[in-house]
Amino acid sequence: MVIVKRKELTLAERLYIPEVLRGLRITLGKMFQPKSTRQYPEEPIPSTEVTRGQPRLAENEDGTLRCVSCGMCEIACPAYAITIDGHEIDRPIEREPERFEIDFLRCILCGFCEEACPKEAIWMSDELELADTTRKGLIYGIEKLKRPASALQKRIDYVKRINDRWRTFSST
């Protein structure tokens, strides 16, 4: 059994007013210090090139998808989040995805799809926000996924730089 002995209050403490003033001093002092709370979502989280946000499909300058629906990301995805159906098109690159779906309820943002892609078509963007009122709304199709390559350029340059560095290391 533990006997808790209550501390005897001093006279100043028992008078109450000095203690209130001591508390107010801390409060007022903090009011003039710089804020440490971020006003999210008005104030967005700063992203870097290393940020691995949601995967996005890169578009060429002419608005065509780089993706040829080869299915490499689909098979690399550890969470089975990607579903692709291809179809034939008239361009010299004969194949394009008819359906490219990423289920963001499943996606774990691991970046394996980006690594697996042989056509530099899927990139981890800096977009991280994800909210919807339905499950269906979080399964993104091509329209929601595609971005001009320029919007993903920061990440593209970063990954290429890292890959090149890895290549020089591994070849020596």
């Binding site: 299915g71 689909e74 291809g86 034939e88 004969e94």
Partner: peptide, 9 residues
Amino acid sequence: FRFKARVWN
């Protein structure tokens, strides 16, 4: 069957 499916799927 052309471009309809990947064979490993």
